[in-house]
Design a binder for these strands. Structure first.
Lengths: 137, 137
DNA sequence: TCCGCTAATGGTAACGTTTTTCATTAATAC
DNA sequence: GTATTAATGAAAAACGTTACCATTAGCGGA
């Protein structure tokens, strides 16, 4: 019964930089990729901080995260609502997609005695550019 | 233009043991869990071998794998066809489910200029038993 | 404006999982 | 049986990620 703590956070330069860097990416990127990007831009941000911010953005719903090849990738998402992605396996570019009714999920789960907590659905493929360059390979 | 090598493999006791151990699980298990299980059963199999076999089973399509909390989990799958799971987040128990038509996937992808290579769709929740024990907590 | 509190940072060490290495074992073909 | 070499296992390396902790710096109040 502990009351909801106000939980004061401070706005720092690093937070702003990380967040804006993530938002300017339309691809899913890893913490390390983002860290390198920031370094290249001349910003000195610790890797630990990048991890921390990315995780907190993900927790607060300001970023989506998926796991590919044992690596966690992040992407900023504007809308707070639940949504899914169409991800390019080559360059990481992603598009948010809207699947048809997901009602059957809870229905199906109930049939098996399950109580749904969450679901994930991601489509992987090659975007137009990557598909083109792959063909000419 | 290298011809398809016959790629001869040898059947070993370890392969058999690992495969049968995985098949007797109706849950998703990690390499380490399976390794411990084998040890408990009196089998002495190297951890590296468990990893190797699990990966090769996954590659050959004889096992499905998902990633939860940075860990890779495996599960034997009888059917070679594409399928999805309803997974208990607590105990790992899984049921194969059949989603409605997935035609819209390729359609949607095409709209965005993507060429679909694969898609993943997993539902997570609590099975009847785990939900019950969670409530009485 | 300065002060004090402490959230946040950053470098590094630690961690856990997975892969690689390499000498040894053993499955297959002859 | 013998030769060949795929497969194994123990340990080390690699990898992504988190924890630690001394230091920095937001922010509210004197």
């Amino acid at each position: 019964m502990t009351a909801e703590e106000p939980k004061k956070t401070r706005s720092t330069a690093q937070k702003a930089v990380i967040r804006s860097a993530l938002e300017s990416e339309k691809r899913f990127v890893s913490a390390q990729q983002l860290h390198r990007t920031l370094e290249d831009q001349g910003h000195t941000v610790g890797l630990a901080t990048v991890y921390r911010q990315l995780n907190s953005l993900s927790d607060s719903g300001h970023a989506d995260s998926i796991t590919i090849a044992e690596k966690q990738l992040f992407r900023a998402c504007a809308q707070d609502e639940h949504h899914h992605h169409l991800v390019c396996e080559n360059c990481g570019k992603a598009v948010e997609v809207e699947p048809p009714s997901e009602d059957w999920i809870t229905t199906t789960a109930r049939v098996h005695g399950f109580e749904v907590t969450r679901h994930m659905f991601e489509i992987f493929g090659l975007c137009a550019e990557c598909a083109a360059s792959a063909q000419s390979r």
